[in-house]
């Protein structure tokens, strides 16, 4: 049995979200099991399963060099550009 991570799109229009994992022998079984475990209360319209070993993840120890620079790149955020009240619904 392999470990699979499960992603569910709850409703059309939303992204797939990671909801947990399960064990299965193949992706077919994993999809069926995901449907049985994670959509019991009609919480899904689409399921993705990915072998956990196929997922590459960023390294939390590199968080600073990877993610912090944006903090001082303030001009990327919309709030940096004050607009006249008349057009402030942008």
């Amino acid at each position: 049995m392999k470990l699979y991570e499960v992603f569910i799109r709850a409703k059309s229009g939303l992204n797939h979200r990671h909801v947990g994992s399960l064990h299965a022998a193949d992706s077919h079984m994993a999809l069926q099991n995901a449907r049985d475990v994670y959509t019991r209360r009609e919480e899904g319209v689409s399921i993705w399963v990915v072998e956990a070993s196929a997922i590459s993840a960023s390294n939390p120890e590199q968080a600073e060099s990877w993610f912090d620079p944006a903090i001082d790149k303030v001009y990327r955020h919309p709030t940096f550009y004050p607009l006249d009240k008349e057009v402030d619904n942008m």
């Binding site: 049995m1 399960l22 064990h23 299965a24 079984m29 069926q32 099991n33 049985d36 475990v37 019991r40």
Partner: peptide, 11 residues
Amino acid sequence: PFLEEDIALTN
């Protein structure tokens, strides 16, 4: 025979 299948059968 395993947890996932237990859930599937009862389903």
